[in-house]
């Protein structure tokens, strides 16, 4: 096990950023810390890196107790949201920094820097200053700089948060591929559930200083531990008083089903088309407002429009909160 966190708490003044957190992060994986801003995920990452000190608890990195180690002795690669590029140094100098601190031989540094710049596709920018790079390029430089020290773990704090949507998506794919090549234990913080679902092997959902759930993207999406996780990972509406995803609802134009408790009659109050999707707002006879998502083809085929009378029923195998289901 690469990173073991036990009983970690941290508060800033009266604000509890982390409350008694236990977490084990496996070697070689790509783990996402996911949660809303202010939920404590960045604080946890910074505590792992030694950039912040925990008020209580221990941090073990590769079996070694790192709780008291200062950041510079942890051999942890850290990538910041705003790149933290050394503005007065060229790209090559930035990448070489950690190696120069470690007093590696000059030709080894040169070789290693060239290798890494190639890996992050910045080989032709080696002699530029960070100000002459785009955001995406700067972030790749920051990544190469963190990888140069051959860290035992690579930590990324909202690495794509400051980039625009398109670059963000490219870098996301690229990070996944890079990780498959380099295999260093990687933890990244994000508040974007799509990013976490798409890139990570394992997701840790953190909210209000606590871990809500740990699992693979599929586990989290299909069997959320509670309403919060369910709500955070995708759209949620309510049907018959229970949370459900809008695309997990069957829409019928005639009464269906044997179990009347499962079926809810209603009327389409609003219909919005967004590309291939059709979003319905259904006012049920119980007085509930339920959102439903259909494809355009489905909506057309059924002839659904505002004012249509419909019967709603959860899909078989619809995502439900496991805790609720257990009750």
């Amino acid at each position: 096990m690469s990173i073991e966190i036990s009983g970690v708490s941290k508060s800033f003044g009266d604000f509890d950023a982390l409350r008694d957190v236990d977490l084990t992060i496996p070697s070689g994986g790509l783990t996402a810390l996911l949660g809303p801003s202010g939920g404590g995920k960045s604080t946890l990452l910074r505590i792992i890196a030694g950039l912040e000190t925990a008020d209580a608890g221990r941090v073990l990195i590769e079996g070694r107790d790192a709780t008291e180690l200062p950041a510079q002795k942890r051999n942890v690669g850290f990538v910041f949201q705003h790149y933290a590029a050394f503005k007065h140094m060229t790209v090559a100098k930035n990448v070489a920094f950690g190696l120069e601190i470690r007093k590696r031989p000059k030709d080894e540094i040169r070789r290693k820097v060239a290798e890494l710049l190639e890996l992050v596709h910045l080989d032709q920018f080696a002699h530029r200053l960070p100000a002459q790079l785009s955001g995406g390029q700067r972030q790749r430089m920051a990544l190469a700089r963190a990888l140069a020290i051959e860290p035992s773990v690579l930590l990324l704090d909202e690495p794509f948060g400051a980039l625009d949507a398109k670059v963000r998506k490219e870098l996301r794919d690229w990070l996944r591929r890079l990780h498959d090549e380099v295999h260093v234990t990687t933890v990244f913080v994000t508040h974007d559930q799509e990013e976490a679902l798409e890139v990570a092997d394992e997701i840790v959902v953190i909210n209000q200083g606590r871990i809500e759930q740990v699992g693979t993207p599929d586990q989290l999406y299909d069997a959320p531990a509670n309403d919060f996780v369910m709500g955070f990972l995708g759209d949620v509406t309510r049907l018959g008083g229970r949370p459900i995803r809008p695309h997990d609802i069957e829409v019928h134009t005639t009464p269906v089903g044997e179990d009347p408790a499962e079926v809810h009659a209603g009327e389409v109050a609003r219909l919005t088309r967004v590309g291939f999707e059709v979003r319905l707002l259904v006012l049920t006879v119980e007085g509930e407002e339920t959102q439903v998502v259909l494809t355009r083809a489905e909506a057309r085929a059924a002839g659904i429009d505002v004012g249509s009378r419909v019967w709603l029923r959860p899909h078989r195998g619809a995502t439900t909160v496991s805790a609720v289901r257990a009750v």
Partner: peptide, 15 residues
């Protein structure tokens, strides 16, 4: 941030 990045790369306070 730059100072933290340097520390995480192994630089001492003086460095």
């Amino acid at each position: 941030e730059q100072e933290q990045a340097a520390r995480s790369l192994g630089a001492s306070s003086a460095q």
